[in-house]
Computed example of a mutant assay.
Amino acid sequence: MKKALKDGVYLVIDPAMERRLLVEKLRQVPFGNLAAVQLWDNFGPDGVDDTLIAVVAALCRPHGVPLLINNHWEYTRYTGVDGVHFDEIPTDFNAVQLQMCPTAIVGITCNNDLTVVRWASAHHLDYISFCSMFPSATANSCDRVTFETVKEARSLTTLPLFLSGGITPDNIEKLNELDYSGVAVVSGILSAAQPAESLRAYHQKLNRR
């Protein structure tokens, strides 16, 4: 059975973060308050870290929070990984989809190219994530997304739309004119001195929209 993707804060984990610090920060995060968790495709020269997947899956599982992996769709066949987030449209998605776990959640990144939105809607993906709404060190490969793009996307699809890139509790109110389901956050939580407090601050602003 496919897990539900809730509205709210979607946590993105950078595997390049020093492991002991990363695990310490993750253990401070109230996972039950997250929409989803994604392992970013920033694993380094040794490739995907199965040990980290196991650690994060153990934190997600008791709360029913979906764990997604960035790009490495083959890991949807592994216990604990509930879906995949693609950075771009896969070359042969139909063939890939046949090989993935049939209950896998599938999402994709979009910038200002609405072709991606139309493709995602036509192929019945589960959500779209726009990158980057604001300048961001962790989203430096993304173009800046215009508000007009997000508004047009909402007119084209009913899929959940998540916004990412440089979003903080201090600037999130600038997004209030947009119709979106939640925000994807990397450093805004895991680089915070108090991750739980930071997550709470995001939720407070989201709830005031």
Rank of each mutant, 00 (worst) to 15 (best):
residue 2 K to I: 06
residue 4 A to L: 05
residue 5 L to H: 11
residue 8 G to L: 07
residue 11 L to D: 07
residue 13 I to P: 03
residue 14 D to R: 12
residue 14 D to W: 08
residue 15 P to G: 09
residue 18 E to R: 09
residue 19 R to W: 11
residue 20 R to I: 06
residue 20 R to V: 07
residue 22 L to Y: 15
residue 22 L to F: 00
residue 22 L to A: 12
residue 24 E to S: 10
residue 25 K to S: 03
residue 29 V to G: 06
residue 32 G to E: 14
residue 34 L to V: 11
residue 40 W to F: 02
residue 40 W to Q: 01
residue 42 N to M: 03
residue 43 F to N: 13
residue 45 P to K: 14
residue 48 V to P: 13
residue 48 V to A: 05
residue 55 V to R: 10
residue 58 A to K: 14
residue 60 C to P: 12
residue 60 C to L: 14
residue 64 G to Y: 04
residue 68 L to A: 10
residue 69 I to S: 04
residue 69 I to G: 12
residue 70 N to E: 09
residue 72 H to I: 03
residue 75 Y to T: 04
residue 78 Y to H: 14
residue 81 V to H: 10
residue 82 D to G: 00
residue 88 E to S: 04
residue 90 P to K: 06
residue 91 T to R: 14
residue 98 L to E: 02
residue 104 A to I: 05
residue 104 A to M: 01
residue 113 D to P: 00
residue 115 T to D: 06
residue 115 T to V: 02
residue 118 R to T: 06
residue 118 R to L: 01
residue 119 W to Q: 09
residue 119 W to Y: 15
residue 121 S to I: 00
residue 126 D to M: 07
residue 126 D to P: 07
residue 128 I to F: 13
residue 129 S to G: 05
residue 130 F to Y: 15
residue 130 F to N: 07
residue 130 F to S: 03
residue 136 S to M: 02
residue 138 T to V: 06
residue 139 A to S: 14
residue 145 V to F: 15
residue 147 F to L: 02
residue 154 R to G: 05
residue 154 R to L: 10
residue 158 T to F: 09
residue 159 L to Y: 15
residue 167 I to Q: 15
residue 172 I to W: 13
residue 174 K to Q: 12
residue 174 K to H: 12
residue 175 L to V: 13
residue 181 S to K: 03
residue 182 G to A: 12
residue 184 A to D: 05
residue 184 A to P: 11
residue 196 A to W: 15
residue 196 A to D: 03
residue 200 R to T: 10
residue 206 L to E: 13
residue 206 L to A: 04
